Amino acid sequence: MTGYTKPKAVVLLSGGLDSTTVLAETAARGYQLYALTVAYGQRHAAEIAAAKRVARAFAVVEHRIAQASLDAFGGSALTDAALAVPEDGSTRTTIPITYVPARNTVLLALALAWAEVVGATDLFIGANAVDYSGYPDCRPPFLAAFEHLANVATKAGVEGARYRVHAPLLYLSKAEIIRRGVALGVDYGLTVSCYQADAEGRACGRCDSCRLRAAGFAAAGVPDPTHYQTG
């Protein structure tokens, strides 16, 4: 269409499997991609490096890395080195120690701030309410509440813009996510999902995130390209 300009979207990109699939999905929907990665004080920098690789692979319009020092508060095994990452794979009925207090609230707030600056009204996040670890900020009520906040807490919102928070993976299993990503041409070998990857980005193979990822590839019938630690 002559004169058509693609809408802009800010996509939260951690460098993991889910967020990379969301980036591919957003591109498939015809958006201009503004990828936002947040260094929030997580245990390792491997996922930041992975996010850079993914952003290059998708030729995003711009990739920003923002700082949010959630490790200053701790309270999570992902931001406090004194807390061990669970490796027992047991079924839990409580929110696990890998939950980072208010992380998705902070990440979406940063995405919203950048979206208002670049003129985007669509925010994309890889939240999942099926194969997830029980995090409260991955649930539909949280996403709906943040969308409402975005529309009442911004200059653009009160002047008539309509912000939308998209979570295209919300009701998909890990296997379904992987199949969707493969169909979209995602190279999952670029991604890092492990909670305690080493300096080279190799996965431990023992944490909850590694277990979910490995089970997803097995269920999807897709070869697992994850780089694992040896020994």
Rank of each mutant, 00 (worst) to 15 (best):
V192N: 05
G160D: 15
V106S: 09
A197F: 07
I48W: 08
G157T: 14
A82Q: 09
D71C: 08
A203Q: 07
I97R: 13
R211V: 02
V152C: 14
I177F: 00
L169Y: 08
L78W: 03
A9H: 01
A150Y: 09
R139Q: 09
A46M: 12
L172V: 00
E25M: 10
A46S: 15
G185W: 07
K8V: 00
T154M: 09
A84P: 07
C204H: 07
A144R: 13
T105A: 15
G160M: 14
R202C: 13
A24C: 13
V182S: 05
S76G: 13
T26R: 02
G74A: 12
S209G: 04
A66G: 14
R56C: 13
G181C: 04
A115L: 03
T105M: 06
A111D: 09
T5A: 15
D131L: 00
E25R: 03
V186L: 03
D198T: 12
S19Y: 02
G74V: 14
A24T: 13
A82T: 15
V106K: 05
D88V: 10
A120T: 08
D187G: 06
T93C: 02
H148Y: 14
V222K: 11
D88K: 08
A28K: 13
V10N: 01
Q196R: 14
L13G: 01
A50T: 09
C204M: 09
P86T: 01
D224M: 05
L149G: 15
G16W: 06
C138H: 02
G185M: 10
V186M: 00
S19A: 09
L169E: 08
A45R: 14
A9K: 01
Y188H: 04
A28C: 07
R53G: 10
A218G: 12
Y188T: 02
L17W: 01
L184W: 08
A27D: 09
S209Y: 00
T230Y: 11
I125N: 09
D18Q: 05
Y99N: 04
E147H: 15
A115K: 02
L13H: 02
P168G: 01
R211K: 03
A218T: 15
